[in-house]
């Protein structure tokens, strides 16, 4: 503790002497706040809740730990390298903007930097990760004014950008996990793609425990469910969006599957394949980009579910979740405005 204090103190001294380095003050401030907390005191409510944004965001990271560890276990240290690259390059964009804006560095990036590599295919080259995260943070968040003002989830923006810019890398490269299924073979087909091409429904236990191909963080579904429930119980995320989205994704295809066996996969398979659990618990619930009204959250969740199933079933894309979340993000202000209009209409 003393050591860190000394290091920060010395760095502060160095920075203040050099005119160029002085611009990096926000970085030092962020480190200082990270380690030592605040000395500010309250004014009118004389006591304040102990929760702060740092703890808020670290709980999302904690909830993602099982899925992250499983990803590293399944696909090796390459995943760890992807996470490090994502944090490093995303962090650079964040710092660059904090310096030019002369503002503090905000903690929202802790979550984006971890979620982004988890929604990429496990064999994504590191330079693609870097390009994606830079684009995501820059055009998903910073151009709108930084944390709290972004319309789109930065991780999703990066992912969609990569899907469109590098379709080969992003859609054809799906290695199987190193356990449960055999050697490190490139299969080229996720469970969803297998259903689309040959109507094969993967076994549910394989899907639950992650013995199948898919994006890095989405396959260990037991861990994702546990993480999501943990977040709901700690009140970090609201239960309405995941519940609405998952039940729609279950009920809607369940009905459509009766009529179109090959177009719509059965409900449970829809939930347990692709990024539905990761998206419903960790990305659609991002407080900044999701609707904030309670009824808006129900509407948003249902909207998300319906769109996901429709894109999966009827479009040329195999997975529809990222696009649905992006569309939900775009519709969020509209949903909220409509809900407020109805709630506060003049009598």
């Amino acid at each position: 503790m003393k050591l860190i204090k000394d290091v920060l103190g010395n760095l502060n001294g160095v920075i203040q002497k050099n005119k160029f380095l002085a611009k990096f003050k926000p970085v030092l401030n962020a480190m200082d706040e990270f380690f030592f907390g605040t000395s500010r005191v309250t004014s009118l409510p004389y006591i304040l809740d102990y929760i702060d944004i740092k703890r808020f965001m670290s709980f999302v990271v904690i909830a993602l730990i099982p899925a992250t560890l499983a990803a590293i276990y399944f696909w090796g240290l390459h995943i760890l390298a992807m996470i490090i690259v994502s944090y490093a390059f995303g962090g650079m964009v964040e710092v660059a903007f904090a310096i030019t804006r002369k503002k503090e560095i905000h903690e929202g990036f802790l979550v984006t930097g971890l979620i982004f590599p988890l929604i990429l295919p496990p064999a994504t080259p590191l330079w693609v990760v870097a390009v994606g995260v830079v684009f995501g943070v820059l055009f998903g968040k910073e151009v709108f004014g930084g944390t709290g003002r972004n319309i789109f989830n930065p991780a999703i923006v990066g992912r969609v950008f990569l899907t469109i810019a590098f379709p080969k890398i992003m859609t054809l490269n799906w290695p199987l996990p190193s356990i449960g299924v055999g050697a490190d073979a490139i299969t080229g087909a996720t469970p969803l793609a297998l259903f689309k091409s040959q109507s094969i429904v993967n076994s549910y236990s394989n899907l639950l425990f992650g013995f199948c191909s898919g994006s890095a963080g989405e396959t260990f579904r037991i861990g994702l469910i546990a993480g999501g429930i943990f977040l709901i119980l700690t009140r970090i995320i609201d239960w309405r969006i995941p519940l609405a989205a998952l039940s729609t994704i279950f009920v809607f295809p369940h009905l459509s599957n009766h009529f179109f066996h090959t177009t719509f996969a059965p409900g449970l398979f829809q939930i347990l394949s692709g990024g539905v659990l990761l998206g419903a618990f960790f990305m659609a619930t991002d407080p900044v980009t999701a609707p904030f009204t309670k009824s808006g959250r129900w509407i948003g969740g249902i909207f998300l579910g319906v769109l996901t199933v429709l894109i999966r079933g009827l479009s040329g894309y195999v997975e529809g979740l990222v696009f649905s979340i992006l569309l939900l993000n775009a519709c969020t202000p509209l949903i909220d405005t409509l809900v407020l209009k109805v709630r506060y209409r003049r009598k």
């Binding site: 000395s39 500010r40 309250t42 006591i47 304040l48 929760i51 702060d52 904030f292």
Partner: peptide, 20 residues
């Protein structure tokens, strides 16, 4: 404990909706 520390830095609103 009840004390007057702010327990965190000011940040922009993330519409967590706790206040509502």
């Amino acid at each position: 404990i009840a004390d007057t520390n702010q327990h965190g830095e000011e940040r922009p609103c993330i519409t967590c909706n706790f206040c509502e």
